[in-house]
Every structure is written in C-alpha cells, then in structure tokens.
C-alpha cells in the first residue's frame, strides 16, 4: 500500500456537521443488477437455450411418422406449423417456463447469501427497498425476455420447417393462416402472467431459503405438483386458483365461439400469486438481520 493521497477535501473532512451525499437509487441498483446478470454464464445459457432448443424439437417432431395424437393440437403437429407451436407451448408450460424464469429469479436474492454480499451492497447508499425492487425488476425483465425469445424461436422455426397451412381449431373450425398467427402469438403472450407469477414465487423462495438451488428447483416442483392437483377430479373450487391453470387459459382462443373468461381469471390469479409472493419477500428482506457473510 502506497502513500495516501489527498483524496479527502479538507473542508468536508473537518466539518463535524451531518454529511449529505448523493445516493444511488433504484436506477443505479437496477444497472448493477443487470451488469451482474450479464457477467454470469447462466443467464446467457438460458437465453441461448430458449433460442436454439426449439429448432431441433421442431425438426424431430416434424420427422415423426405418427403425430402425438393424445395431446392438444398433437394430431396436426406434423403437418401444421401453428399446431406444432401450440403443442410445444403446452409442453413448455408444464415445467419449462417455470424453470427458465427460476434459474435467474430463484438465484438473484439467494446468491447474495451464497457470496456473503448482502453486507457489501447494504452498506452503500442504496436502501433495502431499492435493492429489492432492482432485483425483482431484473428477474421479471429476464422472464419477459426469455419468454419472448422462446416464443419467437418456436413460432419461426415451426412455420419455416413445417409450414403455415390453415389451422383446424378445437371446435373443428378452420382458422386462416393470418388469424392463426395472431392467435398463436396471443397464446404465447397469455403465458406471460403466470410466468411472472412463477418468477415471483421463485423470488420469495429464494429470499426465504437463502439457497439458490432451492430457489430454482422448488418453483419447478411446485409447478408440477399444481399440474397434478389440477388433473384430479372433485376440486373445482381450487383448480382456478392454481398458477398452472392460468397457463391453459389460451385454449379458449381456439374454440368457436371463443371464450375469454379463463384469460381474465388467469390474469387475476397470476396477479394475486405475484402480489402475495412479492409482499412476503419484501417483508422478509426489509426485516431480516444480515448476520452472514
């Protein structure tokens, strides 16, 4: 260590009155979170997976001699690109979307515990609330990005490899290619709300358990459990309240006539899950003692 230079302004140094300084605020915290995410391999791997993985899946299903008839839109999947992207959408909502979002959201708080860096960021000039929202916005932004890339890649590769013939809807009606593209895009878009619901769920788990592995794996497991519960009979009251039910709300877009009730319901249910999760996570982050690190 070499000589100390005159890095302190004597006027400031000598004053004994309370000091005021500039503070970073939410924007600065957000920039730091994005930088940290960009410096990590995992985020890039997820994005690359979202873009590249649909291509071989489309190629493989397209090459099958017998289409997967027992799944929604499965019987048309080998000769209709729209049907294929909807088949993949149905699959993605089983556990892929919860996983993709949780890889970042389930880690973004817990990794501070893992690296012992809570004390590093909380002893600067940014409040716990600002750090919380910066992380939450980063995780949600990442969820939007990964869903967009996955949807775009799936739709583009399905239409280019399988084709864009008119689609046969769930009521047996024929849907023209133009309308089908709109509906398919809208279907993917409707999964944003429950995907963000899973993002918030991963956040609260990550905050609660302070462990990235738990934060990433638990939302996926919970999603699968919800799918299982949703498949049981005699639970008509609970089913609409499950986050995974919102993932199926797009089915109504392909019937004749369309029904949009589940879409509104799904939006409300996802919002409720998100608000409750974030509320709990925020309360924990605000109150907790940082004793580790």
């Amino acid at each position: 260590m070499t000589a100390v230079q005159t890095h302190m302004d004597p006027a400031v140094r000598e004053s004994t009155v309370a000091v005021e300084r500039r503070r970073g605020g939410l924007g600065a915290a957000l920039r730091f979170e994005v930088r940290k995410l960009r410096a990590q391999y995992r985020g890039w791997a997820v994005l690359a997976g979202a873009v590249l993985a649909p291509i071989p899946i489309v190629v493989i299903i397209n090459g099958q001699s017998r289409p997967p008839k027992d799944t929604l839109f499965g019987r048309f999947a080998t000769d209709n690109g729209f049907a294929l992207t909807l088949l993949i959408l149905g699959f993605a909502t089983q556990w892929v979307l919860p996983l993709l979002t949780a890889i970042v959201a389930g880690d973004i708080f817990a990794s501070e515990d893992q690296h012992g860096t809570w004390k590093t960021v909380l002893t600067r000039s940014t409040s716990r609330a600002q750090i919380f929202w910066a992380k939450t916005l980063t995780a949600c932004g990442f969820a939007v990005l990964v869903l967009t890339l996955l949807a775009a890649s799936t739709i583009a590769s399905s239409l280019l490899i399988v084709g864009h013939q008119p689609l046969t809807g769930l009521s047996g009606q024929t849907i023209g290619a133009g309308t089908a593209l709109q509906l398919v895009t809208a279907s993917w878009a409707t999964t944003l709300a429950p995907t963000l619901g899973f993002t918030c769920l991963a956040i609260v788990l990550s905050v609660w358990f302070r462990n990235p592995a738990v934060g990433i794996a638990t939302p996926v497991v919970l999603g699968m459990v919800m799918v299982l519960i949703g498949g049981l009979g005699g639970i008509e009251i609970i089913r609409p309240l499950l986050l995974t039910t919102s993932f199926e709300a797009w089915h109504g877009l392909f019937t004749q006539p369309r029904f949009t009730g589940p879409l509104v319901e799904g939006l409300l249910v996802s919002a409720a899950w998100s608000v409750l999760s974030l509320g709990a996570a925020f309360a924990i982050v605000r109150r907790r003692d940082i004793t580790g690190g």
Binding site: R22, R23, G24, A28, K36, A39, K119, T120, R124, S125
Partner: peptide, 30 residues
C-alpha cells in the same frame, strides 16, 4: 452518508473483476 467500512472479511462478487466490483458499488453510492 459519510460512513464506510466492512464487517468481518469483505465480500465481493467472484465473477466480476475487482474493478467491476468497485464500479458497481460506486453506482450504488450515487
């Protein structure tokens, strides 16, 4: 405001360079 230091051994983000860590913390400082 006007306070700095560290508790126990200081911790940083291992996947960032020393400089990038400081730049990030400087952001939080405003």
């Amino acid at each position: 405001d006007g306070v700095a230091g560290f508790i126990e051994s200081p911790r940083f983000y291992p996947y960032l360079t020393g400089r990038a860590n400081l730049e990030g913390l400087a952001l939080l400082d405003g």
